[in-house]
Computed example of a mutant assay.
Amino acid sequence: MMDIHSHILPGIDDGASSMDETLGIVRQLQEAGFNTLIATPHVMDGNSYAKPAEILAATERVKKCILEAGIHVDILPGAENYIFPDMVNWVLEGKLLTLGNTKKYLLVELPLLEIPLYTDHVFFNLQVNGITPVLAHPERYKALSEKPERLLEWAKKGILFQLNLRSLSGKYGPQPLRLAKLLLQNHLIHFIGSDAHRVSRNPFAYKEVLRHLHEIPGEKLCHEFYVPRPAMQEPQ
């Protein structure tokens, strides 16, 4: 399985604070069945943001430590990019990392309470330039919970959606849980992510929530988006 959304790079954002914590998170995700993790630290426009070179270097350090620790999990670079009007130019200029550094998929985060007026424009410009937007945890956005039909409109335009696994355990509240189930039942989830920031107090948390996933859409659909897609692999 591939986890396309995690905050495992130590000291980059509000995720893992040390390499020991990184290793703890990775072990828990491996125990749940993940063999590939994309490290996606928060990235925002402005003077203070994680630059691609910094993310790539941190990813290599984590890969080395994981190998030395005897953990057999592949780590790929990426970023969770907070939407802003000039996003497409930043991507084209190499200032934002795509998932797996493939220049094909961009993980995009929206404000939790409202959808910016320029969102459709940004999505369109990314697609015109060959970049597919992947919306991080759509079930968590209040505005989309109130108007889920907007998600259907985006899906018809080729926008992809990533579900936070623990939304299915009620971690973020009843509203995200309801929308997560609705999206799964209508086959509108394309990728899953742990959105892991730290070691879980329950070492089996991710394994347990995967059972919820099997109960909702059916095992066949689960396997369809569990399988790592060739286009998401890091270029050789």
Rank of each mutant, 00 (worst) to 15 (best):
L213Q: 07
A39I: 10
Q127A: 06
V62S: 01
Q127W: 10
N186I: 06
Y206G: 07
R61G: 01
I216P: 00
I8A: 01
L117G: 00
P111K: 15
G15M: 10
A79L: 05
E224K: 14
I83D: 00
L107K: 03
C65S: 14
Y172L: 15
H5A: 04
T132S: 04
L188T: 10
G94P: 10
E21C: 01
I4D: 00
D14T: 08
L160Q: 08
K64D: 09
G70V: 08
Q233R: 15
A32H: 00
G33I: 13
L183G: 04
I12L: 11
L113F: 09
H212L: 13
V91T: 07
P52C: 02
T132L: 09
D74M: 12
F84K: 03
A32R: 05
P174E: 11
Q236T: 09
Y105R: 05
L160E: 06
P52Q: 03
I25Y: 00
A143I: 06
P228V: 11
L67C: 08
E109F: 03
I55L: 03
P138G: 05
W90I: 05
L107T: 05
Q175D: 14
N202V: 12
E149K: 14
V73A: 04
V128Q: 07
V26D: 04
M44W: 08
N81I: 12
N202Q: 12
K95T: 10
Y172A: 15
L144C: 02
G158C: 07
S48M: 12
N89K: 13
T59G: 00
P217H: 09
H137D: 07
D45W: 09
A39M: 10
P77D: 06
R229W: 14
Q175C: 01
T119W: 02
D13Q: 06
A136T: 00
E146T: 03
V199P: 00
Y206N: 06
C65H: 12
C222P: 01
N35K: 15
H223V: 05
R229D: 07
E153D: 12
G46T: 04
P217S: 14
P148A: 06
R198A: 11
L29A: 09
N35T: 15
G33Q: 11
R27F: 07
C65K: 15
C65G: 03
V199E: 11
F161Q: 10
L177P: 01
M87V: 07
G46H: 07
I71A: 02
K64A: 12
E149S: 09
T102Y: 09
P174N: 08
Y49K: 13
P77M: 09
G15C: 05
L97R: 05
P41A: 05
N35H: 14
E153T: 11
W154F: 03
Q233S: 10
C222F: 12
I25M: 15
L152I: 13
P228N: 04
M232W: 15
I159D: 01
Y226M: 14
G173H: 08
P228Q: 06
I131Y: 13
A57C: 03
E219R: 14
